[in-house]
């Protein structure tokens, strides 16, 4: 921080002496800034741990309290205890064990094909000018269609069986993988490619030894994003007359007026989202050991 002020010199009354700007520097005391005290550091970590755990517990407690005191109707929003009972019921009836694998399989198969296609097209368009010319414009156009909007169309095209569900999930996951892979490959530092060429790498070997490993982080970002999209598409796809899976549980519970089971189903979707995120982080951790890990605070 500096403040500039003009000190007009009146020395000798000479007209040639111009005003001289004098900068006065404001000094700041940094001695105590960010000084690390162990007590404060301990407080910070413990505060973090306690809050992380306490706030969700508090919220669930409030939720339970709300229906115990009668603030909300138990039917509109069943309390956590009722939802636990719903899980117990689903488990003893064997519904949960039947539904979960079905849903996971759907998401997995759809994701697999979506990722395979997205990766293939992304590499093709990234590595070859021809691929870019053929695929990029149409994919950029298709990308703007919200996949939710095509559900009715898919039903008329593919019926209401498994097919439209898998195709919907696959179609929704193609784009994030395609875009990230394509940009990852295209965004590689040209200097690195030149270094590879100097040492005799051309074509396929240049792609596998320099370009693909360097573009892998971007492709994995696409994969992570696609996994999230796959879950979203799963929820949507299971609204299409599902005869098995978590969506089926949800629909049934809706018809039987069982909001506790509906909420139980929704929470399973949420849990799947968390699990997928953790898995993808682990994949990135092990696939990209060379990446410096940066976190703020």
């Amino acid at each position: 921080m500096t403040t500039t002020e003009l000190e007009v010199s009146a020395a000798g009354g000479s007209v040639e002496v111009a005003a001289q700007p004098v900068t006065r520097t404001v000094v700041e005391d940094l001695t105590a800034r960010g000084r690390r005290s162990p007590a404060r550091a301990a407080l910070r970590t413990w505060r973090g741990r306690v809050l992380r755990f306490a706030i969700p517990v508090l919220l669930v407690g409030l939720w339970q309290l709300a229906s115990a005191v009668g603030w909300v109707d138990e039917f509109t929003l069943p309390p956590p205890s009722k939802i636990l009972e719903a899980y117990k019921e689903l488990w003893t009836a064997g519904d949960l064990q039947a539904a979960l694998p079905v849903s996971l399989r759907r998401a997995g198969i759809g994701l697999f094909f979506g990722v395979a296609i997205g990766l293939g097209l992304g590499l093709f368009a990234g590595l070859w000018k021809l691929g870019e010319e053929i695929f990029d414009a149409p994919l950029q156009m298709l990308r703007t269609i919200p996949f939710i909007a095509v559900v009715p169309l898919f039903i008329t095209w593919f019926g209401i069986g498994e097919k439209p569900k898998l195709i919907l999930i696959a179609a929704a996951t193609v784009f994030p993988v395609y875009l990230n892979t394509y940009h990852g490959v295209r965004g590689i530092d040209k200097k690195l490619v030149e270094a590879g060429q100097i040492f005799g790498l051309r074509g396929w070997r240049l792609a596998t030894q320099v370009i693909l490993p360097t573009a892998l982080p971007a492709a994995l970002t696409g994969l992570r994003y696609a996994s999230g999209v796959a879950l979203l598409a799963l929820v949507l796809a299971e609204q299409i007359n599902a005869r098995a899976g978590i969506g089926y549980l949800l629909n049934n519970a809706n018809q039987n007026q069982r909001p506790d089971i509906v909420i139980a189903g929704i929470l399973i979707y949420a849990l799947l989202g968390i699990v997928v995120d953790i898995v993808m982080r682990l994949v990135e951790h092990f696939a990209l050991p060379w990446r410096p890990r940066v976190t703020i605070g």
Binding site: K191, L192, E194, A195, G196, I198, F199, G200, L201, R205, Q209, V210, P213, T214, L216, L288, W290
Partner: peptide
């Protein structure tokens, strides 16, 4: 072979793999 102003090592390859790059 060339040494540029920047090292231009492939970040995804360990040092020794960079040395025998190509």
């Amino acid at each position: 072979s060339v040494v540029f102003q920047e090292p231009r090592l492939v970040p995804a390859r360990r040092v020794w793999r960079n040395v025998v790059l190509g």
